[in-house]
């Protein structure tokens, strides 16, 4: 009888706790944030690309290399990153691994009509290729030269890292912060200062081009839900209508790599958390069982 009463009291406490929790967490958030359905990075609004011929694409690649470098093929950028940002607002990406990161349909659409593919009004790249077939050939060529394996870090740096810094990974829009040593006599580090000055100038050009400086992504993995990040990257306009961030057209595999990298940098204690959690909870389960026996032995003969 007495036991039942305690369970009844517990049930009342749990009931009101859960109602409150449901109201302030899942329910409130479902009201505050509109739900956006993702399309698994399939870009259904874009037309299927014709079959491309990498050989032909190779002939046409000069269309791109006026602005873009392809380091893996020994093609250098016509300008350094800072000068490029002055000219275009942002440094055009190196195309060595573009074929592995970006969706083929997206690349084909991008070459013909960048504003359509990226869904932003202002985009540095002009329409560059006249026909879908030519664009498909170039995309096929880029795919043929792309490395088989790309690391999570490379995926992030290529797809995000020319606009977004990530200070927890020592990443700037101009690459990693160089390992320099301050002068032992003056305690100053002119080399680092020069680098920082360049980054500052690049960021200024970028901010003028985008309207504001794109945010540092160090903690973004904990500041947004995975669902939000995924749908936002797939199509920024769905979550933030009017944002200057272009759709970048990454494939699902590339996005997963990027997400893993964001997590490795922004939430590096996650593996520890998952490893230690069961031990701590297991400890308290045993603690509770022993405490229960102690409680019973004390209360046995008194009620």
């Amino acid at each position: 009888m007495k036991k039942m009463k305690e369970l009844k009291v517990l049930a009342v406490v749990v009931f009101f706790t859960l109602i409150t929790y449901w109201g302030v967490e899942p329910y409130a958030h479902s009201v505050m944030h509109k739900h956006v359905e993702g399309h698994d990075f399939k870009y259904p609004d874009l037309k299927p690309a014709p079959k491309g011929n990498p050989e032909k694409g190779k002939q046409l690649i000069a269309t791109c290399t006026g602005c873009h470098s392809i380091e893996s093929q020994g093609i250098k950028a016509p300008m350094d990153a800072l000068a490029a940002s002055k000219a275009y607002g942002v440094n055009p990406p190196d195309l060595s691994n573009a074929g592995a990161l970006y969706d083929e349909k997206f690349l084909v659409d991008l070459m013909q009509n960048p504003n359509h593919a990226t869904k932003v009004k202002k985009f540095a790249m002009p329409p560059s290729v006249g026909s879908a077939q030519d664009a498909a050939d170039i995309a096929a060529y880029l795919k043929s030269i792309a490395p088989k394996e790309i690391s999570n870090k490379e995926a992030f740096e290529s797809a995000c890292g020319r606009c977004h810094a990530m200070r927890y990974a020592k990443w700037t829009q101009l690459g990693e912060i160089p390992k320099t040593k301050p002068n032992i006599k003056t305690k100053q580090d002119p080399e680092l200062m020069k680098f920082k000055l360049q980054v500052a100038e690049y960021q200024e050009n970028l901010a003028n081009y985008m309207g504001k400086l794109p945010p540092d992504l160090s903690t973004i993995i904990r500041a947004r839900s995975k669902q939000y990040l995924e749908t936002f990257v797939e199509d920024p306009q769905t979550q933030l209508p009017g944002t200057a961030m272009p759709r970048v057209g990454v494939t699902k595999e590339a996005y997963e790599k990027i997400e893993q990298y964001l997590e490795a940098v922004g939430d590096s204690s996650k593996p520890d958390r998952e490893r230690i959690g069961p031990w701590v909870i297991g400890y308290f389960v045993i603690f509770t069982l022993l405490a229960y026996l102690w409680y019973k032995s004390n209360w046995r003969d008194i009620v």
Binding site: I281, F284, V285, F287, A291, W294, Y295
Partner: peptide
């Protein structure tokens, strides 16, 4: 002894929240 038992149950709940 009863307090400690209740504490034990509470800690299971608490550390579930902490980790997950």
């Amino acid at each position: 002894s009863k307090d400690v038992f209740v504490l034990g149950v509470y800690f299971i709940f608490f550390f579930y929240l902490v980790f997950y």
